[in-house]
Amino acid sequence: MTVKISQTAEIQKFFEQAAGYGNDDGNPRLKQIVLRVLQDTARLIEDLEITDDEFWTAIDYLNRLGASSEAGLLVPGLGIEHFLDLLNEAKDAEIGKTGGTPRTIEGPLYVAGAPIAQGEVRMDDGSEDGVATVMFLEGQVLDLDGKPIVGATVDLWHANTKGNYSYFDKSQSEYNLRRRIVTDAEGRYRARSIVPSGYGCNPQGPTQECLNQLGRHGQRPAHVHFFISAPGYRHLTTQINLSGDKYLWDDFAYATRDGLVGEVKFGEGAARGIDGRIAELEFSFQLQKAVAAEDEQRSNRPRALQVQGA
Rank of each mutant, 00 (worst) to 15 (best):
Thr133Lys: 11
Arg122Pro: 00
Leu137Ala: 13
Gly100Arg: 06
Thr153Cys: 06
Ser69Pro: 00
Ile80Gln: 10
Arg103Ile: 01
Gly151Val: 04
Thr153Asn: 12
Gly146His: 03
Gly146Asp: 02
Leu144Trp: 09
Asp85Ser: 10
Tyr110Phe: 12
Asp125Tyr: 11
Tyr61Leu: 14
Glu70Asn: 14
Val141Phe: 04
Glu120Ile: 10
Leu156Arg: 01
Pro76Thr: 05
Lys147Phe: 01
Val75Trp: 09
Leu84Lys: 15
Gly146Ala: 07
Lys147Asp: 03
Pro76Val: 06
Thr57Asn: 14
Lys147Val: 03
Gly146Pro: 01
His158Arg: 06
Phe55Ile: 07
Thr104Asn: 09
Lys91Pro: 00
Ala159His: 11
Asn160Ser: 08
Arg103Leu: 03
Ala117Arg: 15
Pro148Trp: 02
Gly113Ile: 03
Leu142Ser: 02
Thr101Val: 03
Pro148Ile: 04
Asp124Thr: 14
His82Pro: 00
His82Gly: 08
Ala93Glu: 10
Gly72Tyr: 07
Leu73Asp: 11
Glu54His: 05
Glu81Tyr: 02
Ala71Lys: 14
Arg103Val: 01
Ala71His: 09
Thr57Pro: 00
Leu144Ala: 10
Ile95Asp: 04
Ile59Pro: 00
Lys147Pro: 00
Glu106Thr: 07
Thr153Val: 14
Ala132Gln: 07
Gln118Met: 11
Val154Asn: 04
Gly79Gln: 07
Leu65Pro: 01
Gly66Ala: 11
Leu156Met: 13
Phe83Glu: 12
